[in-house]
Design a binder for these strands. Structure first.
Lengths: 229, 229
DNA sequence: CCCCGGTGGTGACTGCGGTCACCTGCATCG
DNA sequence: CGATGCAGGTGACCGCAGTCACCACCGGGG
């Protein structure tokens, strides 16, 4: 598989967050329960568990990855990035992986993608050299990968359609509803600036648009945050 | 593999273009030379060769595909489509496949994707029921699929970045250069309307922008078409 | 205490690009 | 021949949203 030929390194700005001791096998078994049994074993034996605090930048453009990250806890955000602007492409949640980040790395073109930790994350790193072999030995791993690819692809596509075919009020509302679904809270504590960054817009514009949505009755702006219906 | 669980049908607006007779094995062997030998055989035995004239719409949103199309000749265009607008996402060239179109189909969300034949195409249809099995028997098929996924993904991403971070003049120029690369001709015979559709813009705007590019010296507008440097 | 930094809020301006209306030129066809 | 249709071309208009300048507010730290 082409994706595994690249040599790579996960960006690690702060070594404090390495996991020193081998975590309990029970923990891993619990977290990997969603996998077929043989894969559980292989992953536990060969994977490297790491913890990244919120705010960490995991993957920067131009960097290479020596492992496929499988998220067990927390949440990552994946952005497309230009000089000044950024745009949220999709999230990576527990039990998901970012197989896709390969592509950005494989090709020579600078399709600047950034993965950032949004909620403190625990990640199982699977060394890419071995993945080759696993793919042959465990056909179900192919299933998994394909599913991941498809999921990423659809999320990406949906997002594009949002950006291309809908104006800011719609996009903003969709974004907020998505956050509600993600976090499980109807009251979102997000700064306007954060929202602007995710949507590739500007702070003032978000403020304005939020007011507009409030006037329409789609959201309510409270001291504590944004309530979304 | 999830993608193959869906039952599907290739949209076939005009039966004139079916290939009546079994094409020569030589033809297929030549066209499939880029594949590993065992796959060549399997594909030749089980694939169904079809010919689609330019302009055919191959895949519409909401439709299901019973086969994975492998393009042998010609060129397909893949669009994202909203009510009125359209936007070119990427091309499918010979030796490429559109594994990706699955995703749009698998998920319930209407991420309206359309594939259209731009240059008369010859396509080998691989029945999806069998692909499951092939994936197990022929590990190299996995390679192939992953490569396809990655290619699609990067192209998609590059396009998004164009749309998000660049204004029309830049996008237009990039589009034209891409066409030059694709067709091999420096003189492009495209109507402004076609360009507008591909870029999700309007005819008048393209006219204006082309004039601007000509003034800058990036292109020359001739009777016969657009010359691009 | 005041000074900052960050937050939300607001009005004025601007530019890109989409829309409308209308024009010309050219080819095809009844 | 005139009618029709499609190509490109152009000016006027306008709305969305990004930018700028400046506001008030609040919290923490010196």
């Amino acid at each position: 598989m082409a994706g595994c030929q690249a040599s790579l390194v996960i960006w690690e700005p702060d070594n404090r967050f390495f996991m020193k001791e081998q975590p309990s096998k029970d923990y891993l078994l619990r977290k990997l329960r969603f996998l077929p049994l043989p894969l559980q074993e292989v992953f536990i034996l060969n994977g490297q568990l790491k913890r990244f605090p919120a705010g960490t930048t995991l993957l920067r453009e131009g960097q290479y990855v020596s492992a496929i990250p499988l998220v067990l806890e927390g949440r990552l955000k994946v952005y497309a990035e230009a000089e000044t602007k950024r745009l949220l492409l999709y999230y990576i949640r527990p039990e998901e992986s970012c197989v896709m980040s390969f592509s950005a790395v494989l090709e020579d073109r600078p399709s600047s993608i950034v993965a950032e930790v949004e909620e403190d994350a625990v990640v199982l790193l699977l060394p890419s050299e071995q993945i080759h072999e696993w793919l042959r030995h465990y056909p179900m791993l192919n299933h998994l990968f394909f599913r991941q690819y498809q999921r990423r692809y659809t999320e990406l596509l949906q997002n594009i359609e949002q950006v291309l075919f809908h104006r800011l009020p719609d996009r903003l509302l969709a974004y907020l509803k998505d956050r509600k679904r993600l976090t499980g809270h109807a009251k979102l504590t997000l700064t306007h600036r954060q929202i602007a960054e995710d949507l590739g817009s500007a702070r003032e514009v978000i403020t304005r648009t939020l007011k507009k949505l409030e006037a329409e009755g789609s959201v309510r702006l409270l001291e504590e945050g944004i309530e979304i219906f």
